[in-house]
Design a protein around this nucleic acid. Structure first.
Lengths: 171, 171
DNA sequence: ATTTTATGTCAGTGTTGTTGACTTTCCAAG
DNA sequence: CTTGGAAAGTCAACAACACTGACATAAAAT
């Protein structure tokens, strides 16, 4: 069923014979899996007045407490106007605190409040539960492969961000 | 660096010790990778008057030529009004043909025209190129794991659709 | 003193999703 | 044959979330 073939090549490198069909299935897998990936947080946010954009902001503020608006912008890849709309509501609702920088007073450092952290936990618990179940079902070797392919799929700039986040608490 | 640990458990099953941090990194990998995944088609569509929704419709019509609107709806998971707006422009622009069903004349069977297939090729070529590069970089075992985790992450209904598409040309 | 950077804000626009209401077509059961 | 309901299409209104462009403020850098 899984006919991704590998053969030893002269250089000791494994060569992949990837048919268009196999690649197409990878593409569809990404599409369907991403729907599942966002389904649980979406359900939680649907009641509250927030959407996916709020979730992303909350996630990365939680991940890098005290991050600046500019840093968040380059991670999320949206315009400042778009991010600002989201941040404004989160600050107004008391989920995020915006602190003027000490060294550079132009910068705003973003941190989650208690309430913000509670929502972050609720959202990430749901997402982690699905991820954990998928990892268990697929097995440990699969997890390594999953991460390797995803990382290889990222744009270089995003990959840099991804690995910087990793270093913060993992490396 | 990749510290997803696996240990042989009594039942012969491998046990995974997944920390919240490891799961979180999987979540972030999905987020960043999906951005890369959609980046190339987005760039192509940006010039033309189409968006991601058009791409998705074109992809699945190409994948299952003659599919009905209802089938497409359950694959894409949007409302008929939303899909209809997209299909209407694609039909008006001569990329998609809508054929009245022969057995059931209420149904519309959707197929790509020559022009539609040309755009589909352009889009999927771009997406496959990235996927192929990622597969090559990650290696053949990683590809297996990638697909296994993604499939485990899908909602059951979407997983059914995914596997039905597979059977069509792979099983 | 001037320029650049970081941030915030206002106004307008586009894509993509939603609900709700309504019509047309047409299969199938009574 | 009539009627109920499913499939498809349409119209209107609306919301989330992205975009561009223009402009304001404060502070750092030159």
């Amino acid at each position: 069923m899984n006919d991704t073939r590998a053969t030893a090549a002269p250089g000791g490198q494994a060569l992949l014979f990837l048919t268009d069909e196999q690649l197409r299935k990878g593409i569809e897998a990404m599409f369907f899996a991403y729907r599942g990936f966002t389904a649980d947080p979406d359900r939680i946010l649907e009641d509250k007045a927030y959407g996916r954009a709020h979730h992303r902001a909350i996630h990365f503020i939680s991940r890098s407490p005290g991050t600046t608006v500019n840093n968040l912008l380059s991670i999320l890849g949206v315009t400042k106007q778009s991010l600002n709309r989201v941040l404004r509501t989160l600050i107004e609702d008391g989920l995020v605190e915006s602190r003027v920088g000490t060294r550079d007073k132009r910068e705003r450092h973003l941190v989650l409040t208690e309430v913000g952290e509670a929502l972050e936990r609720e959202l990430s618990d749901a997402q982690r539960t699905r991820m954990r179940a998928a990892y268990r079902e697929a097995g440990p070797e699969a997890v390594q492969g999953f991460r390797a392919v995803l990382e290889a799929m990222m744009d270089p700039e995003l990959r840099r961000h991804f690995n910087q986040l990793k270093e913060a608490q993992d490396g």
